[in-house]
Design a protein around this nucleic acid. Structure first.
Lengths: 367, 367
DNA sequence: TTGAAAGCGCTAACAC
DNA sequence: GTGTTAGCGCTTTCAA
């Protein structure tokens, strides 16, 4: 616990001289600085960041609060945040809120230990967020809606993504398309259901309650649902799952049951987690741009930290990533006019993969 | 930025009264406390953690420093740390050191913003770690060796794991077994190579340089190596890869090349990352107990934080997780006497999976 | 039962 | 060039 005082004593100078010398202030004579630096090294002096931050009134750190670090796509998000904060001279620190009130939640969010926060945790109450956010502590929330002047919204268009996924199945010739919801409470799941319903309705297909399954976002819940599907009287031809984990569970269940994907059942997931590329067959899914989400969140936060609080919600587009699990794709020529494949790329393993953006902005094929 | 002073003014009491009242000190009359609490709520008062920590001389937080949060198994590690720190009343904060000197590395490691650190980053110099670690800032390093009284070592037995993996291949009847190294600089890779060599030598097999491949831990590097292997004059019968990513790259390459795994080439990886369960065929691999590693690291750190610095290095055992990629397993009865299957469990998909611990402690089968 | 004041380690006027 | 000093917001004796 050696402090500036100890260094000062050893170097035979005053505290402020040490402070200035160590930060290479030109006012300090070179010879003095050397003595100070030597003394500091001898004592193994380390500045106390807390004291410095307290004095400065800012920490230079922003916190990212995530409910459960184990999630499959947080790393990409964090990469995006990290990349951007580095440029801005901030440091990212990550806290896990799963521990409840007396962990990272309190320390990082409510006690001013960082300059702002990016929050990805549906379980933190809106009240808490509202009571925390302020001009001196802006908060960006991901994938939820909080109405507050200092809470900024960044999300991607789940509904459009779900619409694309469902439309893709419809255009591939499937008519009996099931939907597997995630946790009822989750906003995602509701939006994805909405997109699914909208696609059905726009193509004049009935939304049969028989084809609505309720899962819990876990692979196991998907597995169970897959079994139920396989044994159902009227098995759907295709299924759109509100996330990839459940889709993979379904895939596993029906495969073990002896069915072929996509011939007996086409499957589309949501999120584009890593494993979707490795399962057999590879899973068609909707990619959320996690990295970009992190970048945008950080942008919004830094804008607010810079004193500009006029920030509109950011909504990023999703991409449909077509892999083998949704089969029977029509050829491009047979696509209805209003559907525009905008990008095609090949997967690692060489098999063709089509990527469509939800915006469907251009009719041209860019490769 | 409302502080205690503002609350005090509003409630018509002194600062110290507010401080005590908000922490429910019994010395403060209930009626006074109510006034104070009301005033604090009105003003949206939030305590300043920095000031509190500065005063207290401790932060109640420990940092976990990881080079690249995107890594495939950090989440398990963090779960382990998190679980344990919660019990201890500490808060875990995670920093990514990839940004270089002026990011989390400096802020969390060298400026006393937390009470101690767990470091998993081979690129942080031993000098820096040694100069940082002290009685008031203990450091636990994972998977490396640093000789310093306040640096504590937690690792798992990579060499034994590699030995097991190689032995497993030998006992499955393979004789020409290749090894794929990771980055030369990495301690893991060297230890895993050592275990591989030891197994070969103990079974009187020659270690042919022809069967030594150098990768970079990435799937792509594995893919390339896989192609080279498939086209080599003397193709190995089996390969042990220093990590799973490369093993998966190899699997992909040889599969695309038209070879069958494990019939034409058996593959064993290392780490047991999530995707190993999902590739076809599922990959035999060596599991590192990441969760337990996190728990042990935290235990060591908290012991040091408690003032007991007599902590010995912790070495955890690895497990061999046998899946379909290493084929042709002998039946149990035909195993040599000194190999003891200590545990058998079934995989999610129902296929049998044998788990052996590196310690090979008991001959009995426990299920 | 409450208030005054010292001080955690640091920075930055302002003096000398 | 260098030293003195007043805080940053909080906790915690010690007085009142």
């Amino acid at each position: 616990m050696t402090g500036l005082r100890d260094v000062a004593k050893r170097a035979g100078v005053s505290i402020s001289t040490v402070s200035l010398a160590l930060r290479e202030d030109p006012r300090i004579k070179a010879s003095t600085r050397q003595r100070v630096v030597a003394a500091a090294a001898d004592l193994g002096y380390r500045p106390n960041g807390l004291a410095r931050d307290l004095k400065a009134g800012r920490t230079g750190m922003i916190s990212v609060l995530i409910h459960d670090l184990g999630g499959p796509f947080y790393s990409e998000l964090l990469r995006g945040v990290q990349a951007r904060t580095l440029d801005l001279g901030y440091t990212t620190i990550v806290g896990c809120t799963a521990g409840g009130q007396d962990g990272a939640l309190t320390r990082l969010l409510t006690e001013n230990r960082t300059d702002g926060a990016i929050v990805l945790d549906a379980s933190i109450s809106e009240d808490l967020l509202s009571s925390i956010a302020s001009a001196s502590f802006p908060v960006v929330v991901l994938d939820r809606v909080v109405a507050h002047p200092y809470v900024y919204l960044v999300t991607c268009d789940h509904e459009a993504g779900a619409y694309m996924a469902t439309e893709h199945l419809i255009q591939s010739g499937y008519r009996h398309i099931a939907f597997v919801s995630g946790l009822e409470s989750s906003l995602h799941s509701r939006l994805r259901y909405k997109g699914y319903l909208r696609a059905l309705s726009e193509y004049d297909l009935a939304a049969d309650k028989e084809y609505l399954y309720h899962g819990t976002y876990t692979e196991d819940s998907g597995y169970e649902i897959g079994l139920r599907m396989a044994q159902a009287q009227h098995m759907p031809e295709a299924v759109f799952s509100a996330n990839d984990e459940m889709a993979i569970g379904i895939l596993r269940a029906v495969t073990e049951y002896g069915l072929k994907v996509p011939d007996d059942l086409a499957i589309v997931g949501f999120d584009d987690v890593l494993v979707t590329q490795y399962v057999t067959p590879p899973l068609t899914t909707v990619r959320q741009p996690m990295y970009e989400l992190g970048v945008e969140a950080t942008k919004a936060l830094s804008t607010a930290l810079g004193g500009n609080f006029d920030i509109r919600p950011v909504v990023l587009q999703t991409e449909l990533v077509i892999r083998a699990s949704s089969g029977r794709p029509r050829t491009r020529d047979s696509l209805p006019a209003h559907v525009s494949p905008v990008q095609l790329r090949s997967s690692k393993s060489g098999q063709a993969q089509g990527v469509y953006t939800a915006s469907g902005e251009g009719p041209g094929r860019r490769d």
